[in-house]
């Protein structure tokens, strides 16, 4: 399996505050990887650092054979890395369709188009001329995912896409994952819901206090190991 994304000893800072301490994560071509961890463990910071929203000058992040650390976010996006941001962040003055179209601004070619997105999320067709923010939470999340797909990414980053949604809606949204992967897009999801993450991912990384405390395929990890890595119950001193 070829490596698509690889970070080596990634560090990230908010001003003087260090939020990531030497994080190594790899995502292979065609893989679905999940990052789990409690609030404030550094998962979202990790996404911000690799997408260029947080400055990452001098760091080592390779993507699709290219060194992307320190590049501006729009260049990283054009290299094929798209993100569904936490809280969806739809553009309120744009319609659903305009929100989707803006995702295609980078001009990358590939399988995804308006028609394909509507095919993936048929609920959106009837709403395409509504303002993005007039939709239900689940539908808004579909728009946010569709908007990211419109750029035909090699890797799709999903930040807390199940947050605040009903279980039925979460299930609908996660049903799209296999179809996204079929199009040749790898997926990296950030989840607080460990069960959901284990179900969808081929490998998981557990974050705690800015470090990776555990990683591996879900089948090989025990409940106790995960609880320890998640809450730091046993490895408190090692982590510190």
């Amino acid at each position: 399996m070829t490596t698509l994304l690889e970070t080596r000893a990634l560090e990230a800072f908010y001003g003087d505050f260090q939020a990531l301490f030497g994080v190594d994560v790899t995502v292979g071509e065609g893989e679905t990887v999940a990052l789990i961890g409690a609030n404030g463990a550094g998962k979202s910071t990790f996404l911000r650092a690799i997408t260029g929203l947080l400055p990452a000058k001098g760091q080592k992040v390779s993507f699709d054979g290219q060194e992307i650390a320190g590049l501006p976010a729009d260049r990283i996006h054009k290299a094929g890395l798209a993100m569904v941001p936490e809280g969806r962040r739809l553009f309120p003055s744009l319609t659903v369709e305009e929100n989707l179209l803006i995702g295609a601004s980078g001009g990358r070619k590939g399988p995804w188009s308006l028609a394909k997105v509507y095919d993936l999320f048929p609920d959106l067709v009837a709403k395409k001329n509504n303002p993005g923010t007039a939709l239900s939470g689940g539908q808004q999340q579909m728009v946010a995912i569709g908007r990211a797909l419109m750029s035909n990414p090699r890797l799709l980053l999903c930040d807390e896409i199940s947050l605040g949604l009903a279980p039925k809606v979460i299930k609908d949204i996660y049903e799209a994952v296999p179809r996204i992967r079929e199009g040749g897009t790898s997926i990296l999801v950030v989840e607080q819901d460990v069960g959901q993450a284990m179900a969808v991912a081929s490998r998981v990384y557990c974050f705690m206090e800015g470090r990776v405390t555990l990683s591996g395929p879900p089948g090989e990890l025990t409940r106790a190991e995960i609880a320890a890595a998640y809450f730091g119950t046993k490895t408190d001193e090692e982590a510190a």
């Binding site: 997408t51 929203l53 501006p72 729009d74 003055s93 744009l94 305009e98 179209l101 980078g106 001009g107």
Partner: peptide, 22 residues
């Protein structure tokens, strides 16, 4: 398309780079 980008930037400039906008 330009106007769409201008309106999006007006709404939320922070995430416009995630759509490939500079």
């Amino acid at each position: 398309a330009l106007g769409r980008m201008l309106r999006a930037t007006s709404d939320d400039p922070e995430i416009v780079p995630l759509m490939g906008g500079n």
